[in-house]
Design a protein around this nucleic acid. Sequence first.
DNA 1: CGTTTGTTTGAGTACGGTCAATGAATGTGG
DNA 2: CCACATTCATTGACCGTACTCAAACAAACG
Lengths: 252, 252
Amino acid sequence: MVTVTQRGCSSVSSSVPLAGHCAACGLRELCLVEGLSAAEIDRLAGMITNRRRLKRGEALFRAGDAFNAVYPVRLGFFKTCVSVQTGLEQVTGFPMPGDVLGFDAISTGAFQCDAIALQDSEVCVVPFERLETLSRQFDGLQHQLHRVLSREIVRDNRQMLLLGKMRAEQRVATFLLNLSKQFAQRGFSSREFVLRMTREEIGNYLGLKLETVSRAFSRLQADGVIAVDQKQLRIEDLERLSQIAGAGCPVH
Amino acid sequence: MVTVTQRGCSSVSSSVPLAGHCAACGLRELCLVEGLSAAEIDRLAGMITNRRRLKRGEALFRAGDAFNAVYPVRLGFFKTCVSVQTGLEQVTGFPMPGDVLGFDAISTGAFQCDAIALQDSEVCVVPFERLETLSRQFDGLQHQLHRVLSREIVRDNRQMLLLGKMRAEQRVATFLLNLSKQFAQRGFSSREFVLRMTREEIGNYLGLKLETVSRAFSRLQADGVIAVDQKQLRIEDLERLSQIAGAGCPVH
DNA sequence: CGTTTGTTTGAGTACGGTCAATGAATGTGG
DNA sequence: CCACATTCATTGACCGTACTCAAACAAACG
């Protein structure tokens, strides 16, 4: 895993001109690279001419911005949120390393949501036109692109089920389990991790108020299911957490 | 394997061997065909070797079914729903002519949701491997495919906002407005139309109980915003309906 | 014509939201 | 380094929206 040390500069985001090294990237299993041949990976990496670093709180893009590229997350943590004129705002996801940001923009050529860094982060800049060109030449890349797009649709559908049908505690339990699985996929501890987002952001994502999230955490802790200390979270009883979540896996 | 349950209809679906005539299809503006050159349309149409007709209540596919093709709707009305083992079920959409069914299946090679015909319907069968092959040759088709996929992501994000943030009456008003716009796009009346789905299916889609949907309808009718008689619906005051859908009670 | 399915409406309830107060953590500038 | 401000989190009391349960009715269907 590549670690990027941030100097204590208070500047805004910097563009990092640097050829992508997808073959060496620890996120191969998740990003656009999954399942590609060595030759395909080389060509994809050659296309990534720069990366972008963001400070906490900074926007990678905002709804309405012109669409040129998609952004695989290399490092850090984001939130994406859609909103309507009236001020309603919905957090639609918490992208983490390996996830790709920006696919919502293909349909209209402008981003449809905001993407905000929840901590200092780094993304690859993948010019979308060149990605389309390359995926016309390599069917492996083409199919992987389709799979990543499809995966996002499936994830959204599951979130709709959570928002439409689950009760508060069940939503929170499902959220923690999903986080846990995602950390496991990325080689981090699935049992203990840091919640990069606030209670309010969690609540927004889950269709709950922050107080309800806090109460759910307290209750789960009182029952010995989790141990939570501010943003630090440990799963004490995975079995029971899964029960509460309702074995929230899709049926086949 | 999943069994296909049929509700109250005796005949199964029929396959209709027939070359697609995309150029002549009234849904050109919506389907995969949008923005393609005549040559591209011809090639796409040549790939569609058959269609499929479904009776009301019949499943086009079920979660777990093997994925081979995507299905542009030619005629009729569908619902798609995801579920979990515990029995929770969420309606994720009501695809209508011009919409394309099945993109959720690309990610795993198996469908992730059920697609049920709400009335006698007809779809084109587009073998997905051939669609990928063709979209490697025609960048117009490739880009349109990406746009359709992206559009589904955007729509899902908006539905997450509805489910996470809106109040009951606001959800119902938004639902009716969306339907109205979709009918308009397809050349039907945007002011008066038939609700092809039951109150329960609407409620499921909107994260509400059927009684709540019914009450919302009654209230909107009492206020002179809509006129509803069973499945027949007429929008009486579009301005006010938009207000209710958009200008919900300011949360903050 | 009877049965099933779908819709409307009412009464009571519960879950999560609202409001409010307190405290902890983080960050800033003197 | 500390004082202060700000953000974030927890907890309690109360309230309101949407759910639950129930009954009556309408429509669709065999």
